[in-house]
């Protein structure tokens, strides 16, 4: 049976893993290569690496660091941050990435999704969408590392991304990110039911029960988190044992 995936995320800035609250107030969480290999050993199903400085400072993702991380990993590895061209994707795949995640560049020019999917296959193109709740309008998509509101409806954009060839949606709730109050169940469920491709839920994980909830109530295919893993608050194995007890299929 296909299992639900648990995905630690390494937000990387200047070669170090960092973590903030609602995309701000970053603190250091360690060496990305060491963290990546620890997570693979502990039973992570996949790893996501986001170069969070890349878009703002308009520099390419740190290809050498990607290579060092990929060398350690015998689980799938997704890389995002500042990816805007076919050449960017080629360079990352050549250095050991299995999938790439695009965000701002896809919003600036949605046809990029079609081009990348045609060239590399949908299976390796993830569209990352950062959504924030605005009363009374609902969930809207932000771009440029969460600094700019596009006013696009989150479900609408995710559906368009999937229709254009994204093989997976990585949906981050900025309203929940770093709060540890749980995933945004309403928007995750709405997106998951609106697209035919897998949806990774991100933002807000604080307890094992939060993962149970996002799988059982929001139809997420994977749950992504950062700080609870980096700072040792929840072990990947104990999280998966909890999920199995709740009747959720996991790889143990």
């Amino acid at each position: 049976m296909l299992t639900k995936r648990i995905i630690p995320c390494l937000d990387v800035k200047d070669g170090r893993t960092v973590k903030g609250v609602r995309f701000e107030g970053l603190r250091d969480a360690g060496d990305p290569v060491a963290l990546a290999s620890r997570y693979a050993r502990e039973g992570a199903d996949e790893l996501v690496f986001l170069d969070i400085t890349a878009t703002n400072q308009k520099r390419a993702t740190l290809v050498a660091l990607v290579r060092d991380v990929a060398r350690e990993l015998d689980i799938p590895f997704t890389v995002g941050g500042g990816i805007g061209t076919v050449q960017d994707v080629e360079a990352l795949l050549m250095n050991g990435a299995d999938k790439v995640s695009i965000n701002s560049a896809a919003l600036a020019r949605p046809a990029l999704i079609d081009e990348l999917a045609r060239r590399f296959g949908s299976q390796c193109i993830v569209v990352a969408a950062d959504a924030r709740y605005h009363a009374p309008d609902g969930w809207q998509i932000y771009t440029r590392a969460g600094t700019h509101n596009t006013a696009l409806d989150a479900v609408h954009w995710c559906r368009e991304a999937a229709d254009r060839g994204a093989g997976e949606i990585l949906l981050t709730s900025m309203s929940n990110d770093g709060t540890k109050d749980g995933f945004a169940l309403d928007i995750t469920g709405a997106v998951s039911r609106a697209v035919g491709v897998p949806v990774v839920a991100s933002g807000g994980a604080g307890s094992k029960q939060d993962f149970t909830n996002v799988f059982q109530q929001a139809d997420a295919d994977a749950g992504l988190a950062a700080s609870i893993f980096h700072f040792g608050e929840i072990g990947i194995r104990e999280l998966k044992e909890h999920l199995r007890q709740d009747g959720i299929p996991v790889r143990l």
Binding site: T3, R5, D45, P76, G167, E168, P198, R251
Partner: peptide
């Protein structure tokens, strides 16, 4: 959902390629 993406179990193993594996071992598909 399609793509079939993630860890799924192997069954009906019948080859020396799978020596040492058990039925229901997990591998990654996409």
């Amino acid at each position: 959902k399609v793509p079939h993406m993630g860890w799924n179990t192997l069954q009906q193993l019948r080859s020396p390629l799978f020596a040492g594996l058990r039925e229901e071992d997990y591998v990654y598909f996409v």
